[in-house]
Design a protein around this nucleic acid. Sequence first.
DNA 1: TTAAGATACGACCAGATAAGTCGGATATTT
DNA 2: AAATATCCGACTTATCTGGTCGTATCTTAA
Lengths: 163, 163
Amino acid sequence: MLRLSKKTDYALMAMKHLASDPRHRAASAREIAETYDIPVELMAKVLTRLVRSGLLTSHQGIHGGYKLAQPPAATSVAAVIEAIDGPLTMTACTPGDHRCDQFSKCTVRDPLHRIRDRIAAILAECSISEIAADPGPSAPPVTVMPSPVVRRASALSAASREP
Amino acid sequence: MLRLSKKTDYALMAMKHLASDPRHRAASAREIAETYDIPVELMAKVLTRLVRSGLLTSHQGIHGGYKLAQPPAATSVAAVIEAIDGPLTMTACTPGDHRCDQFSKCTVRDPLHRIRDRIAAILAECSISEIAADPGPSAPPVTVMPSPVVRRASALSAASREP
DNA sequence: TTAAGATACGACCAGATAAGTCGGATATTT
DNA sequence: AAATATCCGACTTATCTGGTCGTATCTTAA
């Protein structure tokens, strides 16, 4: 049904989360997972794949976590999808992969592959910064905090540990 | 992985098959299925869905079969996909369908939905005639049969009924 | 040096979805 | 009446995906 896997959704949410943090702190898997009600272990698995693909950097240890490896505008949605789900293919048989039963007789492979390329182009053009530009569900369209004073409570502990 | 279902592949192959026949004959499920090594019952199931969606017309009886309901240029790939797989959604949660666990906290739903629209536009622009314009795998660019003599055996019964 | 908090990795399970099968009903032409 | 079709639903099987678990390793702070 031309559907993205849920892991990819999680990956995009994580990328957006990291891209939206104005201070570019490292965020732990737990932090991200709990923010969006995602199972922690699953989030961790997704994040490590993003690291392996070079989209994130990770740092172990007590104040470790994940950071974007590149500025948000430099990472495309296509890259995220491919990091999680592998190369994006619309059909069972790609040119070169003959595993499909109908490979020899298939008449729609090439036309579909051209369509795939057009879709891939769209996904390659769309960057994480474009995703991040969109306000969240209940998030009001506020880009900057009203005043530095409001950074209390949850923001405090985070702010205090960065010198 | 953004993949089309195999049934959709079969549907497109059938549509192309019907669109490529210069005489616009009705083709039976068996004929199409055997041409491309597709299980007959499955092909039949796919074809009836295309009928229900108004993309094909069917005719029962001894020389029945399926025909395109519209000229190939008037049917989009998007219509075929939706006939088989239902409305094309990239994500688990569409606006209005709250079944996703992360619905309330999801930050990527709207941006992804915009991407979905762009992809849908591409699929809506691409017609069956565009698919049919592409020559098959080993099929040489031959539109007409070399000579009427070759139409034997399986072709005979089909050919003899058209005056 | 030790404990805590973090990533990394692989194996595993369960539920959902897709692919394919089967049996029977109905329609139409010869 | 027989042959060839579509039509329909239920069923089985296989594959994929989401999610879980256990463990090892790394890094910082006390």
